[in-house]
Amino acid sequence: MTTKTFLSPFRFNNGLVIKNHIVMSPMTTMSSFYNGMITTDELNYYAARAGGPGMMLTGVANVSDNGKGFEGELSVAHDEMLVGLTKLAKAIHKDGTKAILQIFHAGRKSNSAILRGEKPVSASALAASYPANSETPRALNNQEILQIISDFGEATRRAIQAGFDGIELHGANTYLLQQFFSENSNQRTDTWGGSREKRLKFPLAVIKTVNEVVNKYANRPFLVGYRISPEEIETPGIRLEDSLFFVDKIKSKIDYLHLSMGDYKRTSLNNPNNKKTLISQFARHTQGIIPLIGIGSIETPEDVNAAMADGADLVAIGREFIREPQWVQKVAGNDLNSIRTQISPSDMDELAIPPVMQTYLKESFYSVMHFTDDPKIHQSYQNTLAPMEGFEKKI
């Protein structure tokens, strides 16, 4: 018999209670308007999946105009976005699901075409190693860095005003928060770079500003989460020891930690002698302090139980929620046989998947989406980075 303790309520340290331990992962829809406003397609997509998970994380929203990382990206950079963001929070709140807005700045993981002729920016003027045609960004000056920190604060204010229950700082997948911490992308010699401690200054400043905004504007429990990539594969680059150091520095300043990886069974990609799962190693640094969200190819109740047994307090489900919007409801009702573990291309409209997102799934995630017309053995992300982690994978 499958144990389902993950369906019990969970309480955060700040008092926010979610109805179960299941989180819907932040997933790119690529379906916002050209200026970052929410579309009806996106609202329908989230509404179809609301009501089951304890909380849902939106696809990422940029906090600055020059922080846009891809076309069709949600924005929280201006007050005129509030009307649409309020509709989004309301759609997610169906049947008590909590709504978390994920926010970021893409940094060098953008290009001048996406930014309408403007050069991308980063900690240093160093191009990313992948994709191969990455543009060399312009190094941010001190005033610009301070402005982006302020932009994160303003984005948080808008999330509060729109009715969200929290924000998640996307410090993973090689975006700007990670770019400042990584020696691969930050080779500054001023106060914003140099030693590991100095490279931590930018994310710490963002967290501080966001918390100040929450204290000023939120009249209800409001979460500040942080998403982190455990490792980088470049040299120089972030290693597991760096990330654990990072977590120790921020864990008293955030409400939860969310890992970003394609498989919950993953071990270190850089140290083959380290056989322990990444979840278990991060859990040793967070247990009893803040909740840890485990993630990666979670499909079944058994996967959820395994991730929680490994140290995850909450478990995020991504691709399976695309295939099966009613996953939680079906598990709760012991209707396991009806859960979709594959997806037919002809069913994607019925599943309220926006048309642009359908194309994205076919082009970038075909081998791991379990499409019924895929004759190949399904690929695993256990021993490799996934496309959403910043790796440009050729399908």
Rank of each mutant, 00 (worst) to 15 (best):
T136Y: 06
T136D: 10
P137G: 11
P137I: 11
P137N: 05
R138P: 04
A139R: 09
A139P: 11
L140F: 07
L140P: 13
N141H: 13
N142C: 02
N142I: 10
E144C: 07
E144R: 06
E144T: 06
E144L: 02
I145V: 10
Q147T: 02
Q147P: 02
I148R: 12
I148K: 11
I148C: 07
I149E: 12
I149T: 05
S150V: 07
S150L: 05
D151W: 00
F152E: 12
F152N: 10
G153K: 12
G153S: 05
G153C: 07
E154Q: 03
T156Q: 00
R157G: 02
R157T: 03
R158D: 00
I160Y: 00
Q161A: 05
A162H: 00
A162M: 01
F164H: 08
D165M: 05
G166M: 01
G166I: 00
I167N: 03
L169A: 14
H170C: 01
G171C: 11
G171Y: 04
A172T: 11
N173I: 01
N173S: 08
T174E: 15
Y175R: 08
L176A: 01
Q179D: 05
S182T: 06
S182C: 12
N184I: 12
S185V: 12
N186S: 14
Q187P: 06
Q187A: 13
Q187F: 08
R188L: 11
D190L: 12
T191K: 15
T191S: 11
T191F: 03
G193W: 14
G193Q: 08
G194D: 10
G194E: 07
E197M: 11
E197N: 14
K198G: 09
K198S: 06
K198L: 12
R199V: 11
R199I: 14
L200F: 09
L200T: 01
K201Q: 15
F202A: 10
P203V: 01
P203Q: 11
L204P: 15
L204S: 11
L204E: 14
V206K: 10
V206F: 10
V206L: 08
T209L: 13
T209Q: 15
T209W: 14
V210S: 03
E212Q: 14
V213Y: 08
V214L: 03
Y217I: 04
Y217Q: 10
Y217N: 02
A218I: 04
